[in-house]
Design a protein around this nucleic acid. Structure first.
Length: 801
RNA sequence: GCGAUUGUGGUGGAACUGGCAUACACAACAGACUUAAAAUCUGUCGGGGAAACCUUGCGGGUUCGAAUCCCGCCAAUCGCACCA
């Protein structure tokens, strides 16, 4: 009898073995087929690993171990996204240095990952906050700058009053700060932008060439939000400048009864002396400015606005005079910040028109505009030359042509996605390599001076003046202009959290190179990433950002593929035992390391993969986790049941081969739960027989190894085989799966009534006769005529009446 | 409001292209072993029962046959949200 399973000893033993034999180091040679598996490197928070990390990493861990056995050269790297606000906030609170905290956290994370037994190639470990790494982040930024994709603009920006930083649109989704969840406010500020909108179309088109789930593609498409429409110029009465609007329905131009411009629209200030009710306008603008983004959406039902006195426009096609309002349902950040309102066919305009008593003129037939706006298709009416067009495609085309001929407007494209606000007024990030020279303007830090190192600072607190702590370091700020040699000042903002992760997959390929960010020959072999797994929450942040950088690097000839990731998958959340999202405040967080302490790393890995559909959210269950440990104990005890070699009998031969097929295929489809269920069934079969052969056991351990590598290696060694890591993945024998009998389900009128075992290859007529003769079938067909018989796969259906 | 995803036993979930619904686990119950408990092993386990029958959120439909396809509801989760 074997002793009870001591998972601590076994796991330590095999982790030491893998370490000593460098089992997971990607090979330098390029002669084998490659497999680049990537999981999102973590931000090294003080809390350590979360069970979510376990779920995110174990899937590709399984695939990586399997691929190595299948003869691939596998790159499965890990590193740390180590710049970021939490470390800085913690440093301010505890009066320590973010660098020290980050270093300690990285060590902690690494220890934890090693305890889980992950097969990461630690020789390629990177951290985004070390100068050898961020040198190249700055280098890419400089390239973006050289190619005109970095610009500075004073606009309304998202600002977190708690973190005291400007946020990108992606970082303030839902009107909340990504870091601290405070309400984000809109402030006019001078900030650096990356021109991601210039890549909107490439980011859209690129989705056609990659293997991403539809849910991910759809979210990116929606976020980019491409819309095709028209810009139309409306003459303003007694003013030489026209008011330009954007619309997707230029064919409804004859139905325009008023215009709306955003409260922040620049024409207001420009022509303020023309506006009779300026006091009223200013009061309204002040009220809008006070609202947070959150309030603006909460109040979305009730339309507000002010009609401008002495500022009216002329409808370019009908020549009618049209009143102009300001209202906050029109946003300055989309289109031109001004719209033509067609209340008959737009619900928002309809509501506004009702409240302010403006005319409603239908120009499309259909619906009941007394009740609500009609947004469907139909025949054009009240529209002069457009009358009688009966679908919007044709009427839009006709109007566009007319607008073009008369120089009144043009076709235009708009995106919901905005340019990427790229600076943070904080310390713990990559310094932006730009210099402000009073003579030359903005000048890039020369490439040979990179990395531009983050200087040491005593006080990390952000300035009350909205400036980065770096602004207080005179030795950093004051410099000479690389162009004219005169005195100049450095940019003191740093890059946002997402900068370093936008290209990290390239650095993993060649992490120690100090000449280039990645050797082109290495890149040619390893790129693209074959399989990238990560969280759904990164789809409109990191995933989009890194695709943007990669497309840019491709355009300037620095990388060899347009898209970085050939295939992307995501994991579903692990919910707390109560079915709610895990959170500290709810106290339902499960610590993976405490699970390892109790049940072992193999049991943790097994349970997380067994708990349900990989992409679905599933609650944690302590009982089920115990059950997985129990399964491993059952496998452990199989060592006392080993008898003989080869196959126990034909039945086991079939079962073992079916299991090889099922597990091999299910791992590839990320159906880890059913793969594990198949292995559990096989173990149950062995218990039912009371024995299994050495070879059967070996095969089972090969299949189990990617999920539970420690126990598998140990048992495999005990029955006398060479380490599984160096063994080829098993192939199933198709002959063993070819059955000589089929078990049919016999239906009468579609309802199952009996089961029938028959030899393979019988004539359909004989099969039906056998089914008709069954005692269980007789009562249902007696006295009735057989109208039709169907034999498909393993179903016999007798249709009677 | 728009978009995506999902709805199956007491629980987590299986069911690949329409073909034997509830695999595999958890929990529960019973038996064996034990002085006893735990552990382990072996059974039972959707409802109803003599059988028929009913059962994949609800109501229709297509089909020899529907958890799966179509139409109409309802509910939940996530994402976007006055995008002109």
């Amino acid at each position: 009898m074997a002793e009870t399973y001591d998972f601590n000893a076994v796991e330590r033993k095999w982790q030491a073995y893998w370490d000593a034999h460098h089992c997971f180091t990607a090979e330098a040679a390029h002669d084998k087929p490659k497999f680049y598996a990537l999981v999102e490197f973590p931000y090294p928070s003080g809390a350590g690993m979360h069970v979510g990390h376990i779920k995110a990493y174990t899937s590709l861990e399984i695939l990586s171990r399997k691929r190595r056995m299948q003869g691939y050269n596998v790159l499965f790297p890990m590193g740390f996204d180590s710049f970021g606000l939490p470390a800085e906030n913690y440093a301010i609170k505890t009066n320590t240095h973010p660098h020290d905290i980050t270093t300690a956290n990285i060590e902690h994370f690494k220890d934890q990952m090693k305890r889980v037994g992950y097969s990461f190639d630690w020789t390629r470990e990177i951290a985004t906050s070390v100068p050898e790494y961020y040198k190249w982040t700055q280098w890419i930024f400089r390239k973006l700058y050289d190619h005109g994709l970095v610009f500075r603009a004073k606009t309304l920006v998202n600002y977190c009053p708690n973190c005291k930083v400007v946020l990108s649109n992606e970082d303030s989704q839902g009107g909340k700060c990504d870091v601290c969840h405070s309400d984000v406010i809109q402030l006019p500020k001078d900030v650096w932008y990356l021109k991601i909108t210039a890549y909107a179309d490439k980011l859209l088109e690129g989705l056609n060439d990659v293997d991403y789930p539809d849910a991910i593609k759809q979210q990116e498409v929606d976020w980019i939000g491409k819309s095709v429409g028209a810009f139309v110029n409306f003459k303003v009465k007694d003013i030489p400048e026209a008011l330009e609007i954007y619309t997707t329905r230029c064919d409804t131009l004859y139905g325009v009864t008023f215009m709306v411009i955003a409260p922040e629209h620049p024409m207001l200030d420009k022509y303020r002396e023309r506006i009779g009710n300026w006091d009223e306008v200013e009061a309204y603008r002040a009220a809008c400015a006070k609202k947070t983004e959150f309030e603006r959406t909460q109040l979305s039902k009730e339309k507000t606005g002010v009609r401008l006195q002495g500022f009216t426009t002329i409808n370019p096609v009908s020549g009618k005079e049209i009143p102009v309002f300001i209202a906050d349902y029109v946003m300055m950040g989309y289109g031109t910040g001004a719209i033509m309102a067609v209340p008959a066919h737009d619900q928002r305009d309809w509501e506004f028109a009702h409240k302010f008593g403006v005319d409603i003129i239908p120009v499309i037939e259909g619906g009941d505009i007394e009740k609500e706006a009609y947004t469907g298709d139909g025949r054009m009416i009240n529209s002069d030359f457009l009358n009688a067009y009966d679908n919007k495609k044709d009427s839009i085309a006709a109007m566009l042509e007319y607008l073009g001929e008369h120089d009144l407007g043009r076709k235009g494209i708009q995106y919901k996605m905005k340019d990427w606000a790229f600076n943070r007024q904080r310390y713990w990030g990559e310094p932006i390599p730009l210099i402000h020279c009073p003579k030359c303007g903005t000048v890039g830090v020369p490439y040979e001076e990179l990395p531009l190192r983050l200087p040491d600072v005593e006080n990390f607190a952000p300035g009350t003046d909205g400036q980065s702590p770096l602004a207080r370091i005179e030795s950093f700020v004051n410099c000479t202009c690389p162009q004219c040699g005169g005195p100049a000042k450095r940019e003191t903002d740093t890059m946002p959290q997402w900068a370093g992760s936008s290209w990290y997959y390239l650095r993993f390929i060649d992490p120690h190179n100090d000449k280039v960010f990645c050797d082109p020959e290495e890149m040619k072999y390893w790129m693209p990433v074959d399989w990238y797994n990560g969280g759904m929450e990164h789809v409109t942040r990191h995933l989009l950002y890194s695709r943007f950088w990669h497309h840019f690097l491709y355009d300037i000839g620095e990388v060899n593929t347009p898209e970085p990731y050939a295939k992307r998958t995501y994991q579903g959340l692990i919910l707390g035992p109560d079915g709610d999202k895990m959170s500290k405040s709810k106290g339902n967080v499960v610590d993976p390391i405490s699970v390892i302490d109790r049940l072992g790393a193999d049991a943790l890995r097994l349970y997380v993969m067994f708990m349900g559909d990989y992409m679905a959210a599933t609650p944690w269950s302590e009982d089920s986790a115990n059950g997985c440990k129990r399964f491993l104990d059952r496998v452990w005890r199989l060592q006392d049941m080993v008898k003989g070699e080869g196959y126990t009998d034909d039945e086991m031969r079939t079962k073992v081969n079916a299991c090889i097929k099922k597990v091999s295929e299910d791992y590839e489809r990320m159906k880890f739960n059913t793969a594990i269920a198949a292995m559990m069934s096989l173990v149950n079969d062995c218990y039912a027989k009371g024995s299994l052969t050495k070879d059967e056991f070996h095969t089972l351990l090969l299949l189990l190894y990617p999920v539970a590598p420690h126990i598998s290696e140990e048992l495999n060694e005990r029955i006398g085989f060479a380490p599984l890591h160096h063994t080829a993945w098993p192939e199933y024998d198709p002959d063993a799966l070819a059955l000589n009998t089929v078990e049919y389900g016999v239906q009468v009128n579609g309802k199952i009534r009996a089961r029938l075992k028959l030899p393979v290859g019988m004539e359909q007529k004989d099969i039906v006769d056998a089914a008709l003769a069954l005692g269980d079938v007789k009562p249902f067909i007696e006295g009735k005529t057989i109208r039709k018989t169907i034999v498909v796969k393993n179903i016999i259906n007798l249709v009677v009446g």
